[in-house]
Amino acid sequence: MVMHRFANPARFLRFAAVALPWFSAAAVLCMAAGLAFGLFVSPADYQQGETVRIMYVHVPSAWMAMFAYTVVAGGSISALVWKHPLGEIVARAAAPIGTGFTLVCLVTGALWGKPMWGAWWVWDARLTSVLVLFFLYLGYMALLGAFDDPVRGGRAASILAIVGLVNVPIIKWSVDWWNTLHQPASVARMDGPAIHSSMLVPLLLMAAGFACYFAAVLLLRVRAEVAARRIRTLRLAAMEAES
């Protein structure tokens, strides 16, 4: 299994060294193209006017907020169930990036909601479930550092991350299950995207840019996490040698 091969941190770091420049370059290129199309080429919406351009940062950050949480939960499952050394490292590394995407989603949503709905915030199912996602991220990161023993902290945080995974489909289908002020999906629909290509192209470019940004920063943070663990191991070995 491919996943299994990369579960070895040393092998993962070799992969990271090759992949990091590619993801970084792709992130810059996709975002630059996405901004150019989104700000200059794509038209204003016939109902929403220019505020529709907020979509090009709001929607990709919402997608990545959910995707990053799935990565945190997936890493936590592999750490708890299969004891993959890389599982928890990846989960820890992805959480702050996901928190950032969720924050961007919430703030840009408020900035879009005020001119279009007349309110910065409404307690509808979509907005509330994304706010819950934000608190799940914060809770996960708080639990990681809440115990003197990092292994116990990691286990408690992993359990929270896995339980919280139930929130991701709730966010996705909240707009169908409940009567929300938030609009339903326009891109990921069974009958194809209900959005004109002049808006779909910048949206997908920005989404690809955000995804590559996530991958690049994730690789960086995994590198830092692996180094931090090696430092801990070396210190323990040195202490044992002295005693």
Partner: peptide, 29 residues
């Protein structure tokens, strides 16, 4: 204000996370 505020928020948050991650890698390694 709304449109540029949204783009500025995204830029600030993403760049801050990138900078913090770069500093952390450098420090740990």
């Amino acid at each position: 204000g709304f449109v540029w505020g949204a783009y500025a928020t995204a830029a600030i948050v993403l760049l801050a996370i990138l900078a913090a991650s770069l500093l952390r890698v450098q420090r740990e390694e």
